[in-house]
Design a protein around this nucleic acid. Sequence first.
DNA 1: ATAAACCTTGGAGTCGACTCAAAGGCAAGT
DNA 2: ACTTGCCTTTGAGTCGACTCCAAGGTTTAT
Lengths: 125, 125
Amino acid sequence: MKIKEVSEKFDIPADTLRYWEREGAIPPVTRNAAGYRDYDEEDLDWISFAKCMREAGVSIEYLIEYLTLFKQGDVTLQARKDLLHEQLATIAQRLDEIQHTYDLIKEKADHYEAYVEGYHGKLAN
Amino acid sequence: MKIKEVSEKFDIPADTLRYWEREGAIPPVTRNAAGYRDYDEEDLDWISFAKCMREAGVSIEYLIEYLTLFKQGDVTLQARKDLLHEQLATIAQRLDEIQHTYDLIKEKADHYEAYVEGYHGKLAN
DNA sequence: ATAAACCTTGGAGTCGACTCAAAGGCAAGT
DNA sequence: ACTTGCCTTTGAGTCGACTCCAAGGTTTAT
């Protein structure tokens, strides 16, 4: 699968796919004879993983760290597990924050809905 | 309340508080005789609002837009309501994405937990 | 066989959101 | 009065994550 197809499949710019690879957030992609990237199943799995993580706000640096461990093989299983749990905790916290903001805005929007005026002050606390 | 106290209360750098104000993401803060910022209740409400929104990933530009409408008074009630609903939709989507990633990482972490080896490939799809 | 549409790399540019530094004013303690 | 610490503004610097460009190689369609 060439980069453009992957780009369309995942809705990620080709430049970004190259950038992730260059930075080491995903492993080097398989190449064809001409030196073109030819993504196989495993490459796509990594893209999928990276996309998910990025959408959840996980940094590139974090992905690099994970991949670095991954490349070192089974000896880093525990370290990778720890890294994932750490990330889980961060994401759970982010979820809470966003949920909280959602509720707040929902309430505020409902005030507007009810067409009551001057309701800014009520939002914050 | 002076800027340092507010900074500590909300755990937001003073520089960031000034930045938000400079950009128009929050209204101009009340000043004392010496020209020092002296945050009152309403100022704090706006900080609280901005902090929430930023944590949920809402851009500064969006806050500026909202405040701009707010300053124009009741004639913009409908527009503000629309803006909030738009933002609600975005945040709801973000919540879903993050929830999805959370589940995925949880699953992956559980694989590690079970100490099964070589489980990267299973994650993505 | 030639143009259009891909692909490659390296490196520079952009953008949002801070973050810091410099130069100076004010305030509280000794 | 002096030091320490907080405050002000303006303007520049940083950082993460892209995003774009140039120069050139490849593939596909006509």
